[in-house]
């Protein structure tokens, strides 16, 4: 009896499920569409949507008398940005340090990644992997604060340099560069490693067989083939540096674009101006990504 009653709705449900399943099976495009809708909606609404709002609000302005945001299009924020020297300096500093960090990380990451991919035994390679990934298991803040101690007046770096009569960089642009180079290094090592690992050994052997020295092989074969991977890694190091505002605040007295954005969002409540300045790194990254795509970085990811 009970079996009969429950079989009724159960049967319909199973039938419905079958119907849907076979309908989907016959329409692979619909199936794909349903699968992709949630992530695409997420990306479209949450990410692109907020980006659109950011761009839009950059053209609004703050009325200083009422501290209300006036939602009429105007270029006043961009005029302030263009006409005030300090914002140009800050933008150039941010981009300059991001570029310096990227170059430093590429130079540091390449030999290590090469060793891991081509020379090291599997055991050593695994150990190196753990060593590279280990810092990522600790909080970003912990690592920046450690650098504060390292760089401080009576810190280990000054003590060490003091032995040879030098003194450390203190807290300024150099300290920002040092700390960022350290923090983002793993993001460069991993893609470069993946790129180097993909180069067929036969190419290297062929290069050797044709009489090329190790250095020539490196210059003419390995680096060109691994270059897209380096560019891929540089996307991480460059964009992460560009958007950061915590490290500059903790290890220096200078400002990044992010610091200016942050302080305008605070008590000042000048969201339109913050949005206008925030479009600068977005533009820079857009240009950077277009360049990276030309260099084949996306295939290397």
């Amino acid at each position: 009896m009970s079996a009969a009653t429950s079989a009724g709705p159960g049967g319909t449900l199973t039938g419905l499920r079958r119907g849907v399943a076979s309908a989907l099976h016959r329409r692979p495009r619909l199936q794909l569409g349903l699968l992709l809708t949630p992530p695409l909606a997420w990306l479209g609404v949450i990410y692109l949507g907020s980006l659109a709002v950011l761009f839009l609000s950059a053209f609004w302005r703050l009325d200083p008398d009422t501290t209300q945001i006036v939602q009429e299009p105007s270029l006043v924020n961009f005029e302030t940005l263009a006409n005030t020297e300090v914002y140009r300096v800050i933008a150039l500093r941010t981009i300059g340090i991001a570029a310096a960090v990227t170059i430093t990380d590429a130079a540091l990451a390449f030999p290590l990644a090469y060793y891991m991919a081509r020379v090291a035994s599997p055991r050593v390679r695994n150990l190196l992997f753990i060593a590279v990934l280990m810092p990522l298991w600790s909080s970003y803040l912990v690592r920046v604060y450690s650098w504060r101690i390292i760089l401080s007046e009576e810190g280990p770096l000054n003590w060490l340099l003091g032995l040879v009569g030098l003194s450390g960089p203190g807290f300024g642009e150099i300290s920002i560069w040092l700390v960022f180079s350290y923090i983002w290094l793993p993001y460069m090592i991993l893609p470069v490693y993946a790129g180097l690992e993909r180069i067929p050994a036969s190419l290297l052997e062929a290069s050797g067989d044709l009489g090329a020295h190790g250095l020539t092989t490196l210059r003419r074969v390995v680096v060109p083939l691994a270059f897209p991977a380096i560019v891929a890694g540089s996307i991480f190091t460059f964009s992460l540096t560009l958007g950061d505002y915590i490290t500059p605040q903790l290890v220096s007295s200078t400002q990044f674009i992010g610091n200016v954005v942050y302080s305008n969002v605070g008590v000042a409540g000048n969201l339109p101006f913050a949005a206008a300045f925030a479009t600068v790194p977005v533009m820079v990254m857009a240009v950077y990504l277009i360049g990276a795509r030309r260099l084949g970085a996306f295939e290397a990811l």
């Binding site: 200083p64 501290t67 305008n264 409540g269 101006f273």
Partner: peptide
């Protein structure tokens, strides 16, 4: 007002 102060503060810090 404070938004002017904020922009001035950015100028001070450079």
């Amino acid at each position: 007002d404070y938004s002017v102060w904020t922009q001035k503060w950015a100028e001070i810090k450079g």
